[in-house]
């Protein structure tokens, strides 16, 4: 019987739980850390942004994070944080962000991470994988991966 599964997702990387920065050897040693960094790099490429080591709040104060990305639409940046259990989440100052760019970019980081992880997962299942990027009529971005034998 064929089926359709719908998933809510959470990213968990326990090995990053005690880390303050995402840099140096951990990128080489922990493939999931490299994947997380790549997810932010894709945002920087898509939105003409830059990878940063910190993000700012509306008063200019630094918000600690492992790694961040700053874009023209969200100049204060969106950062990645990992709690003591390894759960990955995002920090940004939403004050004045009427178009919710912070939330959108955080979602796109998750989507990029999930897309690369799905590509790896399907390849591990011996599927040939093709990846396509769509935009719906409402402008929403969709990533579609097809694994076929």
């Amino acid at each position: 019987m064929s089926e359709i599964s719908s998933y809510e997702t959470k990213i968990s990387i326990p090995s990053l739980a005690q880390r303050r920065k995402l840099e140096g050897a951990i990128i080489d040693q922990e493939p999931r850390a490299a994947l997380l960094k790549r997810s932010l790099e894709l945002i920087a490429e898509d939105h003409e942004g830059t990878i940063t080591s910190q993000v700012k709040d509306c008063d200019g104060k630094t918000i600690p994070c492992l790694l961040g990305v700053s874009t023209p639409q969200c100049p204060k940046g969106v950062g990645v944080v990992v709690d003591k259990n390894g759960k990955v989440s995002f920090v940004y100052d939403a004050y004045g962000d009427d178009l919710e760019w912070g939330r959108k970019i955080a979602g796109e980081i998750s989507a990029n991470y999930n897309a690369i992880a799905t590509q790896m997962a399907l390849q591990a299942m011996n599927f040939e994988v093709t990846t396509q990027n769509y935009r719906t009529s409402h402008g929403q971005r969709l990533i579609q991966l097809e694994g076929s034998v």
Binding site: M1, S2, E3, I4, S5, S6, Y7, E8, T9, K104, G107, E108, S110, A111, Y113, N114, A115, T118, L122, M125, F127, Q140, R141, L142, I143, Q144, L145, E146, G147, S148, V149
Partner: peptide, 24 residues
């Protein structure tokens, strides 16, 4: 019809997986 899995990921990271032509 060959088996395939089509995964669609929306802009907030939600995923839908379509399993096509898997027997039993």
């Amino acid at each position: 019809m060959p088996t395939k899995i089509v995964v669609t990921i929306d802009s907030q990271g939600r995923m839908e997986a379509d399993f096509v032509a898997f027997p039993g």
